[in-house]
């Protein structure tokens, strides 16, 4: 057997899943050309060694992958509605636990829920927060395309300030969305769950490592993945990963992880961060704000403040680890068998 790399390439991960035709989410689904959701879903599911059961909130992923009488899902999959992806997978996991306890089931199974930002930040937030609080053993992955893209792009609480959406148009008195985006990853970390992270689809090795790390913990895990939307952000389909890259390079979307809600680590630190204008200019949904320096300034300020906050949390975590006698670097390593 060939020596495994520290973290497998995507193709290697796929080759281990031949019984699924290589991909948990099969080709032939109806997602847009250039959509980042299918790679995110496959990167996440391929990084998990055990069989999985998946639940999904209503949204882009759901309406394009299970269209009666066909399905793109090669894994057991359930969709109930917009707000319930977490509660549903909690129910499945409860069933699994009790049937095992009763000796009526003997397989090892993992549980994953996917939701867009609408189904996660907004309508599904109560269900997510409560499912996490109850300590169900599952991973929740938000594919965050910063708006209700499945219904033609309305604002969500993940939409950034100034961005055009159909419910926050650019008018004479109001320039796009008035409020800054909600920082859901921070909120999830504040639940004190074993693992919380932000990731981006173009750094797939980081994402798959995070999934593996997440699955090494028992209990609730949350990963927020930025998903640039070619259709609503209005960039060319081939530029999805370029947009994700820009989001990280401008520090608009910091890539980091949090253990137990108290140890923070920023995984990518751009040495020469690009100005936010570069990221904004690449998105016709947002670039009108470049005419308004005061809005751009506000956005840059938000980005800088959040970045500095994260770095401060990271510093604080190191000190905390030292105080507690914990090896900070080791906290974020994969367990031995995964290496």
């Amino acid at each position: 057997m060939a020596k495994k790399r520290p973290i497998a390439l995507l193709a290697e991960l796929a080759s281990n899943k031949e019984d699924f035709g290589g991909m948990p989410l099969a080709p032939g689904h109806r997602m847009c050309i250039g959509c980042g959701i299918p790679p995110i879903v496959n990167e996440v599911l391929l990084a998990i060694d055990e069989p999985v059961v998946v639940s999904t909130a209503t949204g882009c992923l759901e309406v394009t992958t299970g269209v009666y009488p066909v399905t793109a899902w090669n894994v057991p999959w359930i969709h109930v509605n917009f707000q319930s992806a977490a509660a549903v997978i909690g129910g499945v996991e409860a069933a699994y636990k009790v049937l095992k306890k009763k000796g009526l089931y003997d397989k090892e199974v993992k549980f994953v829920a996917f939701g867009g930002d609408g189904g996660t930040y907004d309508i599904g937030f109560q269900s997510l927060s409560a499912t996490v609080e109850r300590g169900h053993d599952f991973l929740y992955v938000c594919y965050n395309n910063e708006g209700y893209q499945n219904t033609g792009y309305q604002k969500s609480s993940a939409t950034p300030i100034g961005a055009y959406t159909k419910t926050t148009p650019v008018g004479k008195e109001k320039i796009g969305k008035q409020e800054p985006r909600k920082d859901l990853t921070m909120i999830m970390a504040a639940h004190g769950i074993p693992y919380t992270a932000q990731a981006a689809p173009h750094i797939y090795r980081d994402l798959t490592k995070k999934v593996k790390k997440a699955m090494s913990f028992k209990g609730p895990k949350f990963i927020n993945v930025l998903q640039p939307c070619t259709l609503s952000w209005r960039f060319a389909p081939e530029d999805t990963m370029r947009l994700a890259k820009l989001a990280v390079e401008t520090r608009y979307w910091p890539v980091y992880e949090v253990i137990d809600g108290k140890y923070w680590k920023v995984n990518v630190k751009p040495k020469r961060p690009k100005p936010i204008e570069e990221y904004i200019a690449a998105q016709p949904r947002w670039k009108h704000v470049l005419k308004y320096p005061e809005i751009v300034e506000k956005i840059q300020k938000e980005v800088d403040e959040k970045w500095n906050h994260l770095l401060a949390l990271e510093e604080m975590s190191k000190k905390l680890a030292e105080k507690e006698g914990v090896d900070y670097e080791k906290l974020f390593e994969l367990p031995k068998e995964e290496n």
């Binding site: 359930i78 109930v80 707000q83 319930s84 129910g91 499945v92 996991e93 409860a94 069933a95 049937l99």
Partner: peptide
């Protein structure tokens, strides 16, 4: 929602 998940699980 949890009942639906649990019942569908079996």
């Amino acid at each position: 929602a949890a009942c639906i998940g649990a019942a569908a699980a079996g």
